[in-house]
Simulated scan of single mutants.
Amino acid sequence: MIETVASTGSTNGDLSARLKAGERIAEGQWLVADRQSAGRGRQGREWFDGLGNFMGSTAVHVQPGDPFTPTLALVAGLAVYQAVLPHCPDPVPLRLKWPNDLMFSGAKLAGILLEREGDSVIVGIGVNLAAAPQVPGRETLALAKFGPAPDRDLFAQALAGYFAEELQRWRTYGTEPLINRWESAAHPAGTALTVNEQTEGIISGVFDGLLPDGSLRLRLADGTSRAIHAGDVMLA
């Protein structure tokens, strides 16, 4: 079920408040807003709320035996990738970037924000369908660059379907096939990256795949590898 609202502060915030109040949000239920006044990205960044873009959230209720919860970011990434793919003139430049971005030729097209609320994880997704923000120092892109912007409601239905499929695969088959599929949709191994790691600052290296827990493996110049569990990742 997809519930739409004309305006709200944040769809993630709304679902969080509902869960705190004891409301049961069924898996597969989405809250989608035409506009957001307090949308957030990772690390508290403001999220652009261009009219005609997709801004929505859903909840996943963690069950006994579920895979490592942070790998839900990979589930969401693959769902967004598949929903966007039919709208791209060339699939090759469309790439996932760890941990939560979808890029086209190095420009950010979509972002994902996971937030924990009790035994649930709220998955917030923003996709630039009609317009992209101007962000100093970063390239951005909207699907409208390639032709008429995708219909937001039809896009929401497609994304919800792909997310449900990926969630079921995650629970059924675990993280190994998920990581393999995510890596096949990401920038290739050997891609130069810089990571602004929260405790050590800027670290440079090359992409060397993901570890079983979904963290980034960064290969350094001396040949050693570093596991990156959190941080801003930029294509060098």
Rank of each mutant, 00 (worst) to 15 (best):
Q82D: 15
G147L: 10
A164L: 05
F146W: 15
Q134I: 07
A131R: 14
S105A: 15
L235Y: 00
E46P: 00
Q198Y: 05
M234G: 03
L167E: 00
I25L: 13
L96P: 02
H229S: 15
R169P: 03
A130L: 06
A107I: 02
Q29I: 00
I228C: 05
A160K: 04
R219K: 14
Y81K: 00
A230V: 12
A144R: 15
R95V: 03
R18C: 03
P133T: 14
A83F: 01
E46V: 11
G137S: 04
G22Y: 15
V62H: 07
A17F: 07
E117H: 13
G39L: 00
G214C: 10
K20C: 10
L109Y: 08
R40F: 03
I203D: 01
A230P: 01
N53L: 10
D213K: 01
M55G: 14
A107V: 04
S204A: 15
M1C: 08
F48L: 09
D153K: 07
V75W: 00
Q82A: 12
Q29N: 02
V92N: 10
V84L: 12
A186I: 04
S215E: 00
R95E: 02
A227G: 00
S57K: 03
A158W: 01
L218I: 11
L96E: 06
T11A: 02
L216V: 07
R18N: 12
V206S: 12
Y173E: 14
G147M: 11
E183M: 14
